[in-house]
Design a protein around this nucleic acid. Sequence first.
RNA 1: GGGACCGUAGCUCAAUUUGGUUAGAGCACCGGACUGUCGAUCCGGAGGUUGCGGGUUCGAAUCCCGUCGGUCUCGCCA
Length: 599
Amino acid sequence: MIPDAVLNRTHNCGQLRESDIGAEVRLCGWVRSYRDHGGVIFVDLRDRYGITQVVFDTPEEGDQAGQDSYELADSLRNEWVISIAGVVRHRGEDRINPKLDTGQIEVVSTELTVLNQSDSVPFEPDSFTSVAEETRLKYRYIDLRRPEMTRAMTLRHEITSAMRSVLDGEGFVEIETPFLTRSTPEGARDFLVPSRMNQADFYALPQSPQLFKQILMVGGLDRYYQVVRCFRDEDLRADRQPEFTQLDLEMSFVTQRDVMNVTNSVLRKVCQVAGKDFPEEVPVITHDEAMDKYGIDRPDIRFEMFLHDVSGIAGATDFKVFTAAIESGGIVKTLCVPGGAKFTRKEIDVYTAFVADYGAKGLAWSKLEDGAFAGGVAKFLSPEVQQQLRDATGANDGDILFFAAAGADDVNRVLAPLRVRVAEDLGLCDSETCAWCWITEFPLVSYNEQEKRWDSLHHPFTMPAVEDIEQLMSDPGAAKSLAYDIVCNGTEMGGGSIRIHDRHIQEKVFEILGIGPQEATEKFGFLLDALRFGAPPHGGLALGLDRIVMEMVSAPSLRDVIAFPKTQRGTCPLTGAPGEVDDKQLAELDLKIIVPHKN
RNA sequence: GGGACCGUAGCUCAAUUUGGUUAGAGCACCGGACUGUCGAUCCGGAGGUUGCGGGUUCGAAUCCCGUCGGUCUCGCCA
């Protein structure tokens, strides 16, 4: 039985300063390290607030309590949990540790209680050694003691707290929506949950609360938000987990600009909390412009280095790669890298291999030196063409041009990542900078060549930005939508749209997408019904909380800002999930496993 | 579904390129010394199915095949 008194902390381990000298204090925490000098023992005591040095001096003759305490201190080991009482004293000028916030002082222990011992830990929760991620996840409770993880978890809390406070101040209401819902036909693969009470039926975990939040608007709730878990059963990446968290919000009687303004307010506060700058005016870039200048709809605008469409110039050369691409309806774009003429052949080969991952057959290039193009494809570039290229790209001596020639989508798919890769290599991607931008005027739909049909670019409930519905029906590919994404440093941090609140327009959009009346009724009938009963104009947006926190702490992986994330194969080394279940459980669900287990 | 890299002591790594004696080091752990350290130091000790299985070879951590796991990535992710 632990006495109550030893649990009654007066301070935490990051708190004590010079002004506390002389105070009698009690601290609890973990032994981060112990330094036994024979006659004096130092213990660094750690909790999530910081580290305080505790000293055990040689006990006075006849001081039995001091003797016991000293002997106990002698037995302490890393990660034991202890409570100490003692007096704060100055360390002495030559003993101050500038690495610690509490480095001016130390606590002289008068009493020590071991609250719990610890086995020798698999790894030390400090910042010095890197540990394999699988090991970190298996022993996450130890990993979470590392200052970086503590910082990520607490900042994450502060960020969600800031989000809530801004939205609360704007009159939003946080409302929970179901996790057990129904599968929807489009989008990502659903996680399914069998229904015991409805044989052969399944719930699906929500990919997002999209339909529910629209229905909340029909319900007159006017301004909704939710910090909510979303589930998508797709392959994982460093920035993609099967379950992730969104700040989801929806508003009635608003324009696109209103939603963007509220989002800016939220992000401004988030950045303030995280110690990052947020611009007065967030740049707004149209989708067309983004694709043209950056080749991607989530441009990294920390640096310029634009792409240039040089189809007209390149088509007039004798270089077959260029002319063939143009003749088959493709384009030629170039990336002008200032100072890139210094790249060696070997470095260019690395970039060639890099773009091969994105499906490029090769990477044409030419350097600009002493007023003329040299190397690579220079021999195909007449003096006239060279001048035109310089005019089009603004290239100067010392630059290099990289070219890609193919269909427009393929060209952009290759050059956009190359642009970022080159910028990283040139040191243009400062991880402390947050360069936010909005992307607007997305196309409503894109043509899916494989399936021979139109797909929503955003989702099927996005309002078309067209006056004439007939025009929409006759040329869906030309239609823009009232959709918008918020981007930071080349990462999509969130997106949303003004929704369709008119049932007739919704039916037309389903028609374009090839969702027949029967399927629409079956899958979304409840939303279509709701739209018949006084749905207000509404729109909203969702922010990826995990990605925002990841950017705010410059973490390389989403796993570093999630307390208990999954590995790339979707497993949890801590719990062993996913795992087998009992035959009894399967029987209750009327399920039968027909494939033998891998093990 | 495809590509790349990785797997050696509890942890982080070396030895793999060029197959060759007993697989080494730091940290952690165990024992000892030390009255001012602070990622303490010093002395000593213990600790190994080189992920797993098979093959080549006189001989495999090293070469080959398979497999499991991890990371990155293309596809995928409205």
